[in-house]
Design a protein around this nucleic acid. Structure first.
Lengths: 260, 260
DNA sequence: TCATTCCACCAGTATATACAAGTGTGTCGG
DNA sequence: CCGACACACTTGTATATACTGGTGGAATGA
């Protein structure tokens, strides 16, 4: 996990972080019981509130499961990705111990095409910065990325070496408020150019992820059309009817995960 | 929303349900402020704890967003599907005001093939119940479903009219503990048979969702391989870097949603 | 030996209270 | 007229306490 520079001053965040690290490092084995809430209270020297808040965080991340009457348990398959790993290709690949790569084919600042004007809610004639890149994992072509950035943040990209690394991280570091994203996932046939770059046959099925990224105020800052070689990447969703974990876990995977 | 027979006795659940209904009915408009926590305390006659728990639930569902120092606000695009709508094709289609349909091609009880033995963690020679169905939306072929059920619950299906409706709902009503699911999403070319049934060309890209459904105790009760016509259905994921809403929202959509 | 009962422990829920920290408004002064 | 400040209100965080109901193992009895 990358060091998160977000302030973690609250006790429940510190407690959650410590327990999370123990789980991810294997210090708390899969299936093992966590200390009971009262144990955690005395260990961390806090009251029950922060303990429960920390456990709720881990539960929402799918790392533990809780049952009334029993201590919390470490869940099997503690697959968790940080939100950055979902937004950023580079961060995702590195989190899996592999090496991300990219080859930029085009970066241009131009007036948005009519379809893009509608999709991004722009005024006619507004500029956007468009980038087309091939993304690689350990040198293997994996994804074609076509992004359009709002001019306000896109201009910064014109001076950025888009072959050097993560646009997402660059923008975040420069203060861009890429806050929330909507992703629509479907399957499309590979166009001739995409097929050649990805090393598949024309018409081969690709997993397409179209993303719209908004600022906190709802302004659309980026739209993207990412097409993955489906033998290189897939999407994983874990969800539960159990009221203890009402929200799903979503992650990208580099290959089909074993059915544990 | 279907009437949920799950017990909702806790006050925070009742409060969340009432606020949720006000949001979904439009009684609380998008962007409008919710009453402050102290207002809600006096309105519902409870202390601050259950109020905050209810708000946390709505926040995790993406219905509201909260900021320190300001009352909670109703989020734009309150797209929420119940968990049943994600597990059950029929429930999902009906929730969108459309008519689900199904044509059963095969239902059989047989010894599990070696690959299935491994995938479901069975003993060699164990029986499974396998079902192949074409699923339709308003009469339009949309998905090919190949499911394998653990014998313990599968036997009940042999006396069920699998053309009549939702297997999932039938099993739940009969006490099956289908508790959590893992879905792996990728893209595959249409096999000749699938292509014919779905009305697409052989090799056309299909969105494949492979599901493993487990009981609360981790026993694998069902595995399924669902292949969608990608012009009929797609997957939608909303997530946020904002710490207020750490968990994503996942939903199936019947067509590409407009980029609002 | 084995099933049943009992009980200590545990998480879920709820109340009351307190302080820190962010937001927005209104007032005051230049 | 407008900027700076103060203040009321709000959510975030934390403590202390209490009760309810589920779990699992130990003690009990047939």
């Amino acid at each position: 996990m990358t060091a998160d520079s977000i302030a973690l001053f609250a006790k429940h965040d510190l407690i959650a972080a410590e327990l999370r690290e123990q789980i991810e490092s294997g210090s708390l084995a899969v299936g093992a019981d966590l200390p009971s809430e009262s144990d955690l209270q005395s260990r961390f020297g806090v009251s029950r509130g922060p303990i429960r808040q920390a456990l709720a965080t881990l539960r929402s991340e799918g790392l533990i499961e809780t049952t009334q009457g029993r201590p919390p348990r470490v869940r099997a398959q503690p697959l968790v990705q940080s939100i950055d790993d979902f937004f950023s290709f580079s961060s995702w690949v590195r989190a899996q111990g592999k090496v991300p790569g990219q080859r930029t084919f085009e970066i241009a600042r131009r007036r948005a095409a009519p379809a893009l004007v509608a999709r991004m809610g722009l005024a006619e004639g507004e500029f956007v910065v468009e980038i087309v890149r091939l993304r690689l994992i350990d040198g293997i072509p994996t994804m074609i990325e076509r992004s359009s950035f709002h001019d306000s943040i896109g201009k910064a990209l014109l001076t950025f070496d888009t072959d050097s690394g993560s646009i997402y991280e660059y923008l975040i570091d420069n203060g861009a408020e890429l806050d929330e994203g909507t992703h629509v996932v479907d399957a499309v046939p590979a166009a001739p150019l995409d097929a050649e770059l990805l090393g598949v046959e024309t018409g081969a099925p690709l997993l397409r992820v179209r993303r719209v990224t908004r600022s906190r105020r709802g302004l659309i800052l980026e739209t993207s059309d990412d097409r993955y070689r489906s033998d290189q990447a897939s999407l994983l969703i874990q969800n539960s009817r159990n009221e203890n974990r009402p929200t799903p876990i979503v992650a990208r995977t580099t290959h089909t995960v074993a059915n544990a």
